[in-house]
Amino acid sequence: MSTQDLAPALAAEEAADPFVLGGETFRSRLLLGTGGVPSLEALEAAVRASGTQLVTVALRRVEASAGTGGAAGSMVQVLDRAGVRLLPNTAGCMTAREAVRTARLAREAFGTDWVKLEVIGDERTLLPDAVELLDAAEQLVAEGFTVLAYTTDDPVLGRRLADAGCAAVMPLGSPIGSGLGIRNPHNVALLREAVDVPVVLDAGIGTASDAALAMELGCDAVLLASAVTRARDPERMALAMRQAVEGGRLARLAGRIPRRWHAEASTPFEGLPAL
């Protein structure tokens, strides 16, 4: 089945089970990051195949030689044309001070008070710095931002971020770009139980089954970038992620069967002939 054939069926499922985030309603439960895209053509194809409505972008110094808008200007044009909403991040910030300032600049550049808050504590693992993160979240909420906080899978920290007024808590499955999947599914499930705001599994997704697992664990959405942008075929992987998120969500709503130690016959023994 081609991308075009499948899209309407998935769109119908998405419309029947909307995702409410920061007071806004989305059909798609897949958020896409743009980091690592091989080309603008690949980005556009992946965005469309994914069905995403919310795409993360970053702010960086303009290059002196970038000329008229450069590739970055075109990236925004591609995303505008796709009709997606832009979600600026604070990637690369290592202190609350840097993150708050970056969020203010992003609000000015993008005209949105939504921000994916990232405060990194370690350059090798890119793991969040819990202390700086909570500090930044409190400041940004006080300034009226809609804060989507990238965090560890610690349920207690997740609760503290939700209590601070974050619009969503976004635990990692494993380090950014690692593709290691969800290393501690139990923590993700506990975090889901611990907060009333949406939980978005963010970072570590490697392939479609990781995204499905996130949804089966009760996450409300999945945010991924590298798994799509660095795949051999980003468009096809984007569609795979869309189906995985959709399938995982449906499975969560449908209610999985309990795990058993031994078999539970699905064919009755009554009426078994003596042969």
Binding site: G33, T34, G35, G36, V37, L43, T56, V57, A58, L59, R60, R61, V62, A66, A72, G73, M75, V76, L86, P88, N89, A91, L105, A109, F110, I176, G177, A203, L223, A225, S226
Partner: peptide
């Protein structure tokens, strides 16, 4: 002064 513009990012 910092002059910043959008770029790809996760």
């Amino acid at each position: 002064v910092e002059v910043l513009a959008p770029t790809a990012g996760g």
